[in-house]
Design a protein around this nucleic acid. Structure first.
Lengths: 342, 342
DNA sequence: TTGTAGGCGTTATCAA
DNA sequence: TTGATAACGCCTACAA
């Protein structure tokens, strides 16, 4: 019955342990610890000391059972690399406020069976909300209506318009890229992008073409060079481009990897970046942008913001009607030396 | 009282709802759903149908409260990019068996205050175990003894020998790299690595030197080129190397990024890879190994295995004494074209 | 100011 | 075979 000392792997102390050590009832201990009124200062002090001695930390399970909310949100992803999920997760953590809400991360690895399985596990754990992150920025199957928790899709929108989806505004990002290149004095701008079946690739191209057209400029090379999201494609497309439009003075690449291939090929052709040709990438993936020669300007999709807004929408949905439809969030241009003014 | 249809955001059904719909007691419904004996086949069918109709899924909180275990493990990381945590997380998920155990991911972002905070949150949520993933492969501060749950450190070991740590066997990985290069016919091998303050860099170099010495070979360039974990360092170190030891026929790079810089500089010097010089990297980071020209041989740290073993050790620790000390797990060599036999 | 008691959803024990 | 009941740890009306 003496004061319990910490022992290796001691079982966690309960409120009852604290109350007993403090010589008060469980109810009083609870009030004291939660800062409720109707507790004398002396009693409060005694209880707090007892809790301290026992390293008491309240059992969040029991609290959750009672409160009807767990303070946990599920993050269901298919993003093997984690390069999408992690920033989104961090944004969500920030928005919820560290400690108040935790994130349960489940990777379905592109397997819909596993996804359903994870979904059921998350629902069983009574998460307060769900963020679904797709692997590519195109509509993906909804995980279902009538779920007992609010759901927000991030990066990849749901194919059900009744769901709420948050995506990057790729159209305006395309405009942004062109606008920037024009501002640094370029006029003969080409666009080398990735897989044409990606909606994001189409959207970026649409935005870029719209902005060019608004400025009465033509696309260098006469067409968008769609291919694959690889460095190799960036190289070979650039060779084709140089053959068709040797006067090109800027390239808007659909990804940072493509941009690296573009720069590579430009160097091989004896051209200087940005002296002869300015290059801007997409994704702002640091390992590419900073190791590139010269450092690569790029467009950041603000994934942290996506996560933050997802968290806000979930919080809003808990107490009120959930939104629906697709919400496009702005991207951000990060200028570096590859597009320095000539 | 009629059968409840699913409604948008309907509250989750409880066991009591199922029992009522099936016309049995809560106890019977529980037994039927859990496949326990002493339930008639007819009753079981009725209960299962009721559960199905209500999309019943048991409240894991209530189960956990009773069972004294939550089926959740915490993953505490400082790995901003997620390139360590995600593979480790996936390995752990696999080992636990999907669905039986979920992983709560917390990123401390290198901030020890935040780390303590996350730790308390995780303990409060009564996780069954904790995996701590450091950002760099050197001893890191222990999160403390006498914790009420078992802890395994992965990638970065704890500085307290009483803790259990799982790390990659960098020494034997260094031997492995040299052995491979020798097997493809190389004799004049150099080692360009990263920051010398990293224990892993030292270990890999130690292993490499030991293997060279065992084969009576000298290190090309006469010393290990320590620098930084960057492509730029790979390039400049290679230039120095070529000036000092133009006869070099292989380079063991301390990371894939360094290896890319090495290959770059070799190409600039008019040398062929692997024709003139073979190059092997470290980390087996796919975006680098496959986009490299030629595709880069590399050493994989088997992070999934690290996660899997961490999960196994945690499971073992739950029912029995936890281990302690540092356990080194083998790496794996992935050959590609950059070290094809000459 | 303090303590008693009920309930959150589930499982297990024991009686019917 | 079934069902009432007691936990698990916590919070909160309400009673003392």
């Amino acid at each position: 019955m003496g004061p319990a000392r910490q022992r290796p792997n001691a079982r966690a102390a309960t409120l009852e342990d604290v109350a007993r050590l403090a010589g008060v009832s469980i109810a009083t201990a609870s009030k004291a610890l939660n800062g409720r009124a109707h507790v004398s200062a002396a009693t409060r002090t005694i209880v707090l000391e007892a809790a301290e001695r026992l390293s008491y930390s309240p059992n969040a399970l029991a609290q959750g059972l009672l409160a009807g909310r767990t303070g946990i949100v599920g993050l269901l992803t298919s993003d093997l690399e984690g390069r999408l999920s992690i920033p989104i997760l961090m944004g969500a953590e920030d928005a919820f406020g560290a400690g108040r809400t935790s994130v349960l991360l489940c990777d379905a690895r592109g397997d819909s069976i596993r996804e359903v399985h994870h979904l059921q596990t998350l629902l069983s754990r009574r998460v307060d909300g769900l963020i679904v992150v797709g692997a590519r920025p195109d509509p993906r199957p909804s995980i279902g209506r009538n779920l007992p928790v609010p759901v927000v899709y991030a990066y990849a929108p749901s194919d059900d318009p009744a769901d709420l989806s948050l995506v990057s505004d790729n159209v305006s990002a395309g405009r942004m890229a062109i606008e920037h290149l024009v501002q640094v004095g370029r006029r003969r701008i080409a666009h080398i992008s990735g897989d044409a079946t990606y909606g994001a690739a189409q959207d970026r191209a649409t935005g870029a073409l719209a902005e060019l057209s608004a400025r009465s400029l033509d696309l260098a090379g006469g067409r968008v060079f769609f291919g694959s999201w690889s460095e190799a494609w960036g190289r070979s497309a650039t060779r084709m481009l140089l053959a068709q439009a040797p006067e090109v003075d800027a390239v808007f690449a659909g990804s940072d990897q493509i941009a690296r291939g573009v720069i590579d090929a430009l160097h091989e052709a004896g051209l200087d970046v940005p002296g002869d040709v300015a290059v801007i990438g997409f994704d702002n993936w640091e390992i590419f942008t900073t190791s590139s020669r010269p450092p690569l300007s790029s467009i950041d999709m603000n994934l942290e913001t996506l996560g933050r807004v997802a968290a806000e929408r979930l919080s809003a949905a808990v107490d009120g009607a959930a939104g629906s439809g697709v919400e496009a969030l702005p991207c951000r241009l990060v200028p570096r030396e590859s597009t320095t003014s000539a």
